[in-house]
C-alpha cells in the first residue's frame, strides 16, 4: 500500500511539473492557434536565468522568479511581434518559425555555456514535507503548489477581468473581437508573453531539481504536447489536470510495466484521445473548431 501511495505521490509531483510547463503552452495555442515548439526552450532559459541570477546577484532561484518571469514575458512579446506577427495568416509558417526559434535558442545557449552542466542551489533544497508515511522534498511540493496557484490565478484572470475576457473573445472569434474594440495584435502579443513568462517561472522552480543543459527543454515539451491534447486544446484547467494525469501515467507505467515503456504508454493514450475525443478530456467540444475556423 505504501508503495502505491509513493508511486502516486511521485506521479502527482511529476504531473505538477508538466502542468506548470503546459499551462503557458496551452494558453498560446488556445488564443493564437500556434503550436509553440520553442516553449521548452523558454523553460530552459528560465533555468539559466535562475542560474545567472544566482551567480551574479546571489539570489535564490525562488526569489529570481520576480526577475526571470518579467524577462521571459518581454522576450515572448518580442518574439511574437518580430517573428510571428509578420507570418500571420500562415499558421504552418508560424509553427516552422517556432521550430527555428527552438534551434536558435538551444544553440545560442550551447555556444555561451560550452555545454557545461550547471546546477542551482536553493536554501530550501534540504527541507522535506511529510505526508503520512512518505516524505517529499520541499522544492517538488513547491512546483505542484505553483502549478495549482498559476492555474487558479490564470483561470480567474481570464474569467473575471475585462482583459481576460478579451483574450477569450479573441480565441473564439478574432474579427468579432475587433468589432468590440479589442486590439487583437496586442492580445496575441500579451498572450505569447504570458505563455513565455509561465515557462520562465517553471524554469526557475525546476532549476534546483535538475542539472541544466541547453537541450533540457526537449524533456518537457514532448510530455507537454501530450498534456495539451489530453487536457483539451486551449483549456487552462485541462492543462493542469492533463499534467497530473500524464505524471501519474508515467509513474504507474514506469513502475508496473517497464520504465522504458512509460513514454510509449503516454503517447498511446495521446493518440487514443486524439482519435476518440479531439477536444480533450476537459476541453469544450467544438471550441477548437471555432478557433481554427477563425484562422482560415
Amino acid at each position: 500500500m505504501t508503495e502505491l501511495v509513493n508511486i502516486l505521490a511521485v506521479g502527482l509531483l511529476l504531473g505538477g511539473i508538466y502542468a506548470l510547463v503546459s499551462v503557458g503552452l496551452n494558453l498560446i495555442f488556445g488564443v493564437i492557434r500556434i503550436v509553440n515548439f520553442a516553449q521548452g526552450e523558454f523553460v530552459m532559459l528560465g533555468m539559466y536565468g535562475a542560474f545567472a541570477a544566482q551567480i551574479t546577484l546571489r539570489l535564490d532561484p525562488y526569489v529570481a522568479t520576480v526577475l526571470v518571469g518579467p524577462a521571459l514575458f518581454a522576450l515572448g512579446a518580442f518574439v511574437y511581434w518580430v517573428i510571428l506577427r509578420p507570418l500571420q495568416g500562415q499558421p504552418m509558417m508560424q509553427v516552422f518559425a517556432t521550430f527555428g526559434l527552438l534551434m536558435i535558442l538551444e544553440n545560442t545557449v550551447l555556444a555561451l555555456t560550452g555545454g557545461t552542466a550547471y546546477s542551482v542551489n536553493s536554501g530550501l533544497t534540504g527541507y522535506s514535507v511529510s505526508f503520512g508515511p512518505i516524505q517529499i522534498g520541499l522544492p517538488r511540493v513547491l512546483v505542484l503548489t505553483a502549478a495549482t496557484v498559476v492555474t487558479l490565478a490564470l483561470g480567474w484572470y481570464l474569467k473575471s477581468t475585462m482583459h481576460g475576457k478579451a483574450i477569450r473573445a479573441v480565441a473564439q472569434d478574432r474579427n468579432a473581437a475587433r468589432l468590440m474594440g479589442v486590439d487583437v495584435e496586442r492580445i496575441y502579443m500579451v498572450s505569447f508573453g504570458i505563455g513565455a513568462a509561465l515557462a520562465g517561472l517553471a524554469g526557475c522552480l525546476l532549476s534546483p531539481l535538475y542539472t541544466m543543459s541547453p537541450q533540457i527543454g526537449m524533456n518537457f515539451i514532448m510530455p507537454a504536447f501530450a498534456v495539451v491534447v489530453l487536457g483539451g486544446l486551449g483549456s487552462v484547467k485541462g492543462a493542469y489536470f492533463g499534467g497530473l494525469i500524464v505524471g501519474l501515467t508515467e509513474a504507474l507505467a514506469g513502475f508496473y510495466l517497464d520504465p522504458a515503456l512509460k513514454q510509449a504508454v503516454l503517447f498511446l493514450m495521446f493518440i487514443i484521445v486524439l482519435v476518440v475525443r479531439p477536444s480533450g478530456l476537459f476541453g469544450t467540444a467544438g471550441a477548437e473548431e471555432v478557433g481554427l475556423r477563425e484562422q482560415s
Binding site: K165, R168, Q172, A176, R178, L179, G286, V290
Partner: peptide, 24 residues
C-alpha cells in the same frame, strides 16, 4: 483606421449571423 479604433469613434457593427462569442 484599424477596426478596433473605430468603436471609439462611435461606429458599431452587427455582423452576419451575430457572431456572438459562443462559449461566453
Amino acid at each position: 483606421t484599424a477596426a478596433h479604433r473605430r468603436t471609439g469613434l462611435g461606429l458599431a457593427m452587427v455582423p452576419e449571423g451575430g457572431r456572438l462569442f459562443p462559449f461566453m
